[in-house]
Every structure is written in structure tokens, then in C-alpha cells.
Amino acid sequence: MEELIISNDNLKKIVHELLNNDCRVIGTTAENKFKEIESADELVLNPGSVPTGSSFKEYFFPKTEPLFFYKQNHSNVDLFDPIPDKSKIVVLGAKPCDAAALPIISKVFNWDYKDDLFNSRLDNSLIIGMSCHYSDEFCFCNDIGGSPENMKGSDVFLKPLADNYFKVTSITPKGEAFIKEYQKYFEKDLGKNKPIERKVENPKHFDYDKVKTWLDNNFENKFWDTAGEMCLGCAQCAFVCPTCHCFDIIDEQNGSCAGRRAKNWDACQFSLFTKHASGHNPRDNQEKRYRQRISHKFKYYMDKFDEVLCTGCGRCSRGCPVSLDILQVVEEINSLPENSNSIQ
């Protein structure tokens, strides 16, 4: 297939057409936030920007969504399915660390139970990724199998070229179909626009295999007593994370005879997360809850789904109210002897 490029202006024209075709377009704005944009002018694609405050997972796995509605009908109860969300979603300007999260969480949503709500949104979506020209002390995508040019999770991938152009790569059949549909906006790559060089380096921080081995053998280790000591137990980290996917199911009433059952975001740092009906709480302090967070991300998910439940975007650390830095914690684990219990 021939090499294609697209100008920023033409990309905006596509967005304009998409919006006219009742497509939901999720893109980054001037405030560097993912937002459902209303006009193509709102879209700002900047490969050099810091990852947005929140990931775009809420458009696939919303913070709250109904599973069904109920209403009392004399002595019976009527149940109603919510209106299925069939609208097409196009995500524009996803960083590699954002896009890679979707195939990762897709595994848990398609494990024993197939989550139709998540799947239908994913099936109706098109992810346009973009290479990343940013790196700071919180970024670590390259330590866990990612990279600033990683195309995992994207259907179409853009690489910035000089003069506001992007080099276009289609990765999936969905991506190819998209390029075909809007082919009038794409141009042949004649090599006139030079690629913009990435000016920042991504240093190597830790050896994932070593960290995994340590986690395998050190569930009970003194390290955990201090690792999460300062954690306050909010869910900022989990809710801005592109891969955190835990949810809670609750019933909510509206008036006296009707209501809904809803699926809401939940987080392992909440004390209520593991509390049993009996009152017993197996993770009864923040240190244990923090161990769970690290272990789930770097061990359990790998054991079960062969993926690291983290893309290295660094959002959790950038936003943490007490500056708990997941990278520093993992680096510290990396520096510990394999079985440090013996030298306690």
C-alpha cells in the first residue's frame, strides 16, 4: 500500500464530516483535555503535550451507566433494558499510552462474562493514535513494553511531519476502511515533509521481569509497610488511569416504585472496596491496599491475562495529592534483592 500523509486542515475537515454524520468525536482540546468535541476547531493535536489529566476510558467505560431500569407494576416488577449506545465513536490524538489501554482492559471485559456495554462501544469505535513527543520524570512506557511510537490499540496512527502534516499508517481493517472512506483528504507521501524529530529521551528505569519475580515471591515483605504509608486512600489514581477497570454495582431508587441498577467506577484504594457484609475487611489498612494496587498492575494481571495493567502514562503520579510516585515505587522494588525477606 502506498504511503499516505494528511494535513492538519484536512484532518479537521474529516472531523467536520464525522460530526455531521452523528459521530461522537473525542479529541484533545486547547486545555489539553479529552472531550467530546462539538466543532472541528476545538481539536488541538499536539504530540509534545503532557498526557491529559484524565484518560479517555470514560467514553468506553463510563463513570456511571445503567444496566437496567425497574418499575413496580401492581404486584409485579417490570424491567427495562437501557437504550443501547450505538453511536460511532472516533478518538483523535490518543497517545500510545492511552490507546494501548483499550486492548488491555478488553481482556478483562471479555474473560468469563462478555461485557456487551463495553464491547459494543469498542466495536463502534475508531482510535486514531499519534506518536508522542513528550517525556517527563513520570513517564515509563518503554519500561513495560510500550514506546512513544507504539501502535497497539490504534486503528490509524499519525506521525507528525513538518508544516502541519501527519504521516498516516493504517493498522487494522477498521482503519483501512476509514482511510478509504475519506480518501479524498489524504495525499501521497512524496517525501517533501520531513518527519519531526523527537527531542526527548525515554530513559530505562527498571527491568520488568525482575520486578515481576520480586512480586511473585514477596507478598509478605517489610517493604509494603512503608510503600503505601502516606497514601490517603482516595481514588484519583484509579479514576484517571487508562487501565483501571474495577466497578461496583448498585441499585438506586427514583421515587418510591422505580429506579435503576447501575455500574459505577470503584477503586481498590477505598477502604470499602473489600469490606465484607460481615464487617470483616481483609485489606484493613492502606498499606495492604497499596500492595494490592501495585500487585494487580504488575503481577496478577500478567499472571491471568499476560499483560501489564499499566501503560506507563504516569497520570496517577502527576495527580497524586501526596505525590506518591508509582514509578519510584517500582524502581525501588527493582533495586531490592530477589528475596529480601531474609535480610530484614
Partner: peptide, 16 residues
Amino acid sequence: KEIEIPVAVEEGVSVK
């Protein structure tokens, strides 16, 4: 608004 049964659903077939 989010907790109310959407009108389109209520008028359609209810599942039991």
C-alpha cells in the same frame, strides 16, 4: 435525568 427510565425504553417492549 439519569435515573429515570428513558421514555423510548418505557414505550418499547419491557424485558422480564
